[in-house]
Design a protein around this nucleic acid. Sequence first.
DNA 1: CTTCGTTATGTCATTATTGACATATCCATT
DNA 2: AATGGATATGTCAATAATGACATAACGAAG
Lengths: 179, 179
Amino acid sequence: MNTLSYGLLSLLTRNSRTGYELMQNIQPFWQAKHSQIYPLLAQLEQKGYVEFVHVPQSDKPDKKVYSLTDNGREALKKWIAQPTDEPVVKDELALKVFCIGLVDKEQARKVLHEREVYYQKKKERFAQSFERIKQDSAKPLEELEIHDPLFGLYVLIQKATLKADADLVWCEWMKSKLK
Amino acid sequence: MNTLSYGLLSLLTRNSRTGYELMQNIQPFWQAKHSQIYPLLAQLEQKGYVEFVHVPQSDKPDKKVYSLTDNGREALKKWIAQPTDEPVVKDELALKVFCIGLVDKEQARKVLHEREVYYQKKKERFAQSFERIKQDSAKPLEELEIHDPLFGLYVLIQKATLKADADLVWCEWMKSKLK
DNA sequence: CTTCGTTATGTCATTATTGACATATCCATT
DNA sequence: AATGGATATGTCAATAATGACATAACGAAG
């Protein structure tokens, strides 16, 4: 069982989801393509950690809605207690910035601008996520307790927002350096 | 040529380095083991993007000190002008936090504490990096221009520091939630 | 005196991940 | 009318990345 497999189980603690949705929803924590997700789901099903129901659709292709089994939930608890790997980052932009002095300011600004747009979109997405869970939640978000099903999502969006802010502050600072 | 190969060339713009040093120095931007670096360096040498001199050592094993060729520098410039991939993140902790409600507060605190130590160490490392380049630099860091060889390093440490701060703010906030 | 960590390079089998192909329907744009 | 994107699932060859093995010498800790 690799980390991504546990990640899929993690998502299923809150909602039943299709493979396609799992692929989309796991992106903020772990970038993976559908070609990796589907085989892992088949494995998880074989192990008895998830089960699925076939849902026929007329307008779109049929789907398989996966949900977590009790076995899956137990496996998750054990996984949480294990030591946690440090985050892995692969950042092409950072590598380019390291040797940005090779090109002129004009081009450096272009490289930076691309990424600034990306960070801004990211921040907007998180703001939308906050809105969505605010509507789902009975209580004000600040009062959510650890066992509230929305808690995990809330604290992660909080973290992502803090990071996106840090990225944007850096972009502004960097732009002033390239004037 | 994959991104990591260009990353190695990027590092060599500032200093000649051994494979072992490259493996260490690239960690903040791109986590890779020596078993991946050495074969890539051999490829880069074959392509004429880097060259090396053999340096015998008596106390430690001999080393190969790699440096960038003009061809390598040209390849780098072309790479910078290409569209940049978005950063890849694989964060096991984030996945655990998503379903942290499965365990009790005590265990959740334990999981968080592990990572807090990690973020603190990270911040210290960046503070040390700042100290080091301050000593290397003739000017105050704030006045570095894009073509200064220290510029890329300076802006990256700035970014990493901002991010580490954001992570620590989140840890504090999270701890207050787990009281 | 032995074991462990660091420096230093390298190979290789296994595993993780991607990109391309394949199929099918709907909707919006050109 | 055709093209492209979203939804939805799947396979498979190719590439990326890891973990284990191998060698070797030093210093420190036990």
